[in-house]
């Protein structure tokens, strides 16, 4: 009989320091494009090059709508000038809109114990894989008080990935309605935030907010596990939210 207990003990604690300290192991996150100050014709070239309209020209340069970015790297790597700078880091979650910001955090009672229901609304599998990493020893969301729950009746947070395919609209609405209040919805990934590369079309929508109210958006394609964890911390008010639009000024200020 294999000695699993011994094996487990020998492996020691692997959990990330990300709670209080920053985590800086390489390979944690693919990073994010940042807004940058550029001449108008360069800005126009970048807007033209972005396949998902994540880049938009703004006063003095380009701004990035992180909800639309699908990590194609066509504005950054392996390209001729102009290119946008790329920031690393992972604290990307933000309130979906001003209304969600008003609702803000769930009360203190949820700060140490939050139950999450996950719903796949047509995700490609990468978001799901990243969300699944949250329960592996590296990220270990349980020790932050976050748990998956097998029923929406016990859920405080509905975590949704995918652009919401036609057949998942009804299951999504039923699941949301089955949850007791107060409840919060976290949309993870570019598809859930904006429809990504799929929607809106005849078969998929333009994100979760078309069906149910969304509170926190975690951009990324897919968002790395720590970004999702940051999203959950934002829900309970243990971390401040980030911004969904990266503009030239704040883009340059946060090299991380």
């Amino acid at each position: 009989m294999a000695n699993w207990v011994l094996k487990g003990l020998r492996t020691r604690i692997k959990t990330s320091a990300y709670r209080s300290a920053a985590e800086a192991v390489s390979g944690l996150s693919p990073g994010q494009p940042r807004g940058v100050a550029l001449p108008a014709h360069d800005a126009a070239a970048l807007v033209e090059r972005c396949p998902t309209r994540a880049i938009d020209s703004c006063e003095g340069g380009v701004a990035i709508d992180q909800r639309r970015c699908v990590d194609c790297f066509r504005c950054h790597a392996d390209v001729e000038e102009p290119a946008v700078p790329w920031g690393d880091g992972y604290e990307w979650a933000a309130y979906a809109d001003d209304v969600a910001a008003m609702r803000r955090k769930l009360g203190h009672a949820f700060g140490r114990s939050l139950h999450i229901r996950f719903l796949d609304a047509g995700a490609c599998g990468a978001c799901m894989s990243e969300a699944r990493q949250l329960i592996n020893p590296y990220y270990n969301m349980h020790n932050l008080g976050f748990f998956m729950t097998p029923t929406p009746r016990n859920a405080d947070v509905l975590m949704v990935a995918g652009p919401v395919s036609d057949a998942m609209r009804l299951p999504l609405r039923i699941t949301y309605e089955a949850m007791p209040t107060p409840k919060r919805v976290v949309a993870i990934g570019a598809c859930a935030a904006s429809g990504g590369v799929f929607g809106p079309s005849f078969a998929a929508g333009g994100g979760v907010a078309e069906i149910i109210p969304v509170d926190v958006v975690v951009p990324g394609c897919p968002p790395p596990p720590l970004a999702i964890l940051h999203g959950l911390m934002v829900v309970v008010g243990r971390k401040p939210p980030s911004e969904l639009i990266s503009r030239p000024s704040n883009g340059e200020m946060s090299p991380e």
Binding site: W4, G27, S129, Q133, N136, C221, P222
Partner: peptide, 29 residues
Amino acid sequence: VVATAQAALIEEDLIRLSCQVARHRYFFG
């Protein structure tokens, strides 16, 4: 449980490795 955790550690290590050599954790782009 322990075997799941062991495999999950290897999985995350591989994902990080992908990110180090190809920029993206799932080889997008």
